[in-house]
């Protein structure tokens, strides 16, 4: 049986009918109890989650995952941060194209009320004045309205269904 050394496989060519698609998130710092996922929704609106793993380079930490998409397939994806017990943050929704490389800076657009408090209490990353903090919170709330409404509604629907 002949074995093919993966070293010599063209990573830009489809594997079967699928292409490697890299998704990378930068400028994000997770706490020990937090996990980051990419949630991808295909045309049939079926969400699928991919765990994002840290890649520590000399100059930065990036979170990375690889998904396989069919040739010219396009899906929607967003980043989610969860603690062991709850959803903490979600990002806006991005278009992901097959065989491409998506690299985005972390920017939350929906924050659960608890995690805002948690973030402010614990976060030593940026020292903000009270005024700045208020502004940030307002921006976050606004963003959550403008960008995440469909997901927000969806989530509430899902929650009600679960009940």
């Amino acid at each position: 049986m002949s074995t093919i050394n993966p070293l010599f496989l063209d990573s830009t060519k489809p594997i079967g009918d699928k292409s490697i698609t890299n998704i990378e998130l930068t400028q994000i710092f997770l706490r020990n109890d937090e996990a980051l996922y990419l949630e991808v929704t295909n045309q049939m609106d079926i969400p699928q989650r991919f765990s994002m793993t840290p890649i520590v380079t000399k100059k930065s930490v990036k979170y990375h995952t690889t998904i396989l998409l069919k040739h010219q397939q396009q899906v929607k994806g967003r980043f989610i941060i969860e603690s062991s017990t709850e959803l903490l943050y979600v990002s806006k929704v991005y278009e992901i194209f097959s065989g491409n490389h998506l690299s985005e800076k972390w920017e939350p657009c929906f924050v659960s009320s608890e995690s805002i408090i948690k973030g402010e209490k614990k976060s030593p990353r940026k020292s903000q004045t009270t005024k700045e903090r208020k502004q940030t919170r307002e921006i976050k709330v606004n963003l959550s309205k403008s960008l995440c409404e469909p997901y927000f509604v969806e989530q509430i629907k899902n929650l009600l269904e679960d009940l």
């Binding site: 063209d10 990573s11 830009t12 490697i20 890299n22 890649i55 380079t57 690889t66 491409n100 490389h101």
Partner: peptide, 17 residues
């Protein structure tokens, strides 16, 4: 010497070669 760990970082990239 950091270069010794780079193959793992690059191996899953689209166009890694």
């Amino acid at each position: 010497i950091m270069l010794s760990g780079i193959e793992i970082i690059l191996s899953s990239k689209f166009g890694r070669e």
